[in-house]
């Protein structure tokens, strides 16, 4: 099964941000999406998940050959899509435990019996351990008062419980110190099984030391302008984005208008 993004154009409040994105991710593949600020990486993430502010103007997104762009976010989850948020939203009064349970039950294949509260508690406890998280975490309100590291870990915890086919991780490395980064990265590795296709959005190469992508893509001005293997990320780290973006701009300037 594949997640296919085909010539995707999307705009926010009338302004076009994505200007024809093409990308195909197979289950089991790890992709990294890099690019300078404002290149449209997070817009791609929100558009894939179906944020109402991001309007698809043309193109398509398919999972297993079926278009998902008309579906509400919850229906996309049921197709196997997951988004780890760059800025997870806090919700007062909703306990982490009841939230996780709802997310878990809603991401299960249809027709399967949800686990009892005791079975679920065991399942969560195992995942918490894997992410070096304390169980008291479950009694807190959803993301409320969480540190940056706790928020990101909580996102990976949700991914671990929901077991998506395709996971988009939007700057999951941002705002983490080096220890937290390692824990989160290891978490991503443990959670991404052979059935998970992932798209890791990042500015920096540092997380790619832990999470090894097979494919690296560079985004600029709403398009993917370069794709390659892991070596591409190292070249970017050495030479900076202008190495590619500048080159591409030159190339564009040379073409007759």
């Amino acid at each position: 099964m594949k997640l296919e993004i085909k010539d995707l154009h999307a705009s926010v409040e009338g302004k076009e941000i994505l200007k024809g994105v093409d990308l195909s991710i197979g289950q089991g593949e790890a992709h990294a999406l890099m690019g300078p600020n404002g290149s449209g990486k997070s817009t791609l993430a929100y558009t894939l998940m179906g944020h109402p502010k991001y309007q698809v103007t043309s193109g398509d997104v398919l999972i297993g050959g079926e278009s998902i762009i008309k579906l509400t976010p919850d229906k996309r989850v049921k197709k196997g899509l997951f988004l780890a948020f760059q800025y997870p939203v806090s919700v007062q009064g909703v306990s982490m435990f009841s939230f996780l349970r709802a997310a878990y039950n809603n991401s299960r294949p249809p027709g399967t019996e949800p686990p009892t509260i005791f079975e679920f508690r065991e399942e969560v406890a195992a995942k918490l351990k894997m992410l070096s998280m304390d169980e008291t975490f479950l009694n807190r309100y959803l993301n409320e008062g969480f540190s940056g590291g706790e928020k990101k870990r909580a996102e990976i915890l949700q991914m671990a419980l929901m077991r998506p086919k395709f996971a988009v991780l939007d700057e999951t490395d941002s705002g983490l110190d080096i220890d937290a980064l390692r824990i989160v990265a290891e978490g991503i590795n443990k959670v991404s099984g052979p059935d998970t296709g992932s798209l890791l959005i990042t500015h920096y190469q540092r997380i790619l030391k832990y999470v090894k992508p097979q494919f690296v893509h560079v985004m600029h001005q709403g398009r993917i302008i370069q794709s390659g293997g892991e070596e591409l990320s190292r070249l970017l780290e050495e030479k900076g984005y202008s190495w590619i973006t500048g080159y591409k701009e030159e190339e564009a300037a040379q073409q007759p208008a």
Partner: peptide
């Protein structure tokens, strides 16, 4: 908040 929770599969 609505988007976040819907992105976790809740209707």
């Amino acid at each position: 908040q609505l988007f976040y929770l819907m992105a976790r599969g809740l209707s």
